[in-house]
Design a protein around this nucleic acid. Structure first.
Lengths: 259, 259
DNA sequence: CGTCTGGTTGATACGACTCAAATTTGGTGG
DNA sequence: CCACCAAATTTGAGTCGTATCAACCAGACG
């Protein structure tokens, strides 16, 4: 039971569901709530793979919501180095309330071709003033996003190359699973080794060798943009993965639910 | 014109002002706004140096607001390694809306003895429903906090030891300056070399040697818990410091204002 | 005074980087 | 369908930045 290869341009664009499924990891939503979310994400846009959705210095005007595809938030240094500071998966909001700021301090680029909803400040205000449950869920989403950012800081600061890579693989797998995009320890995995290098603060060469170690230890298979985690528990141990920072211990879903 | 040495127990506890001064880096507040902030931060608590204010696993009940002293948010790994993921300075809110979450995924410890206000969910709701300017300012605070977290991710991922250390020194100096706790390129600096090591993902030994390099290059003086940046511009260059992520380009204050 | 914490120094080891080239893969056009 | 090209992956050899381990020193404190 393999998943379809992720070929740019060949996606399943199930807009509404993915949004609710992410927020419903926190709390059950009413039909009205779901409907309000769908309504607010009507205005969409496509971004080609490897293109920026928004660039450092731009004035942010919308809250972006990923409907389909993968994206990455990254920061660049004057010497040309780049760091991917977060990964966006379907169902992720990019930045609640960003439009308060005058300029973006980073860029958001598409890893694969993406479909994103653009929500105006007015729409967000309407949504949050009328739908307290959604507001709560959005807050939860925001808290989890920054918790992930903290975990990445820990990842870069204290874990070895082997642990770091293991950690991001597990995280992405679990996050995909909560939005129904991963099953049976398998998922699409469009990041190149170079992307992984920029996300983990390693060089692409070292990522390559370390992935071979992970393969050699029987923990993962990774080829043709498909990830298969052969032993999730051992991989979590090996990368000192503690899922508490994903805050999935709520009514909506359960961490151990093999969704 | 030197500043008083930071001796544990000997602080200036100017409660109200520091809170407003932080938020007013974003926007001017009315007398009513300031008064509401002071009212909400009446319920305070002291935490001794090197004690936890709240620990991983605890149920969060309040929004904490630092009135005085320095704190650190940190995460620990099963193998004993620790990473300081953020530093709290006077005027910083710890986590807006944390009480939504069931458990803390990290700990917050006091670097020096701290005075913190504990704000209940009800008080926060009252504040935000009645004072739109304050709400906006709180959102700005939140966005800046997560921007700092991203910058730390970049710091750990892409900068050398020398650049990393230079970067945190500049950041802390600038942040202190916006709340009136630093002047003339000098500030209190209670972090030990070990703290700096845990914040930068280096060993204490290497921090020691790297600080000596910074000193040798005529960029800083650092002794007896006092930091003196001898050449701010050169230090910013040397650490590839771009202040855009602090989002100080608002009406309230100006980055270049030598406050 | 003796103890403790924080800072400093030296010698050595190793994980990850660099540079350079070869190989494979996937997409494109003849 | 095959030839071609660019992007991504893989391999090898040599280097370097930072870690490790182990003392030692200075000042603060009781």
């Amino acid at each position: 039971m393999t998943m379809p290869t992720l070929v740019p341009g060949a996606f399943q664009f199930n807009a509404g569901p993915v949004v609710a499924s992410k927020l419903e990891a926190f709390t059950k939503l009413s039909a009205d709530d779901r409907e309000a979310l769908t309504r607010v994400s009507q205005n969409t846009r496509h971004v080609d793979a490897r293109r920026d959705l928004i660039s450092e210095g731009d004035k942010p005007r919308y809250v972006h919501l990923v409907i389909d595809g993968w994206g990455a938030r990254y920061k660049s240094l004057p010497d040309g180095k780049r760091q991917i500071v977060s990964i966006f998966l379907p169902g992720d909001f990019c930045d609640l309330n960003v439009y308060i700021l005058k300029h973006m301090d980073h860029s958001i680029g598409a890893i694969t071709r993406m479909k994103v909803a653009m929500i105006t400040p007015e729409e967000m205000n309407a949504l949050t003033s009328q739908r307290p449950r959604v507001t709560q869920a959005l807050w939860w989403h925001e808290l989890v996003s920054t918790a992930i950012q903290r975990e990445w800081t820990l990842n870069l600061g204290q874990r070895s190359a082997y642990e770091r890579l293991g950690h991001v693989l597990v995280e992405l797998y679990l996050r995909l699973r909560t939005v129904g995009r991963a099953h049976d320890n398998r998922c699409d995995f469009p990041l190149t080794q170079n992307d992984l290098a920029e996300a983990t603060g390693l060089t692409a060469v070292h990522v390559n060798r370390t992935l071979q170690e992970l393969r050699g230890d029987g923990l993962i298979e990774l080829e043709r943009r498909q990830l298969h985690i052969l032993d999730l528990e051992r991989l979590m141990d090996a990368s000192m993965f503690n899922a508490n920072y994903l805050h999935l211990d709520h009514e909506g879903r359960h961490l151990d639910a093999n969704a």
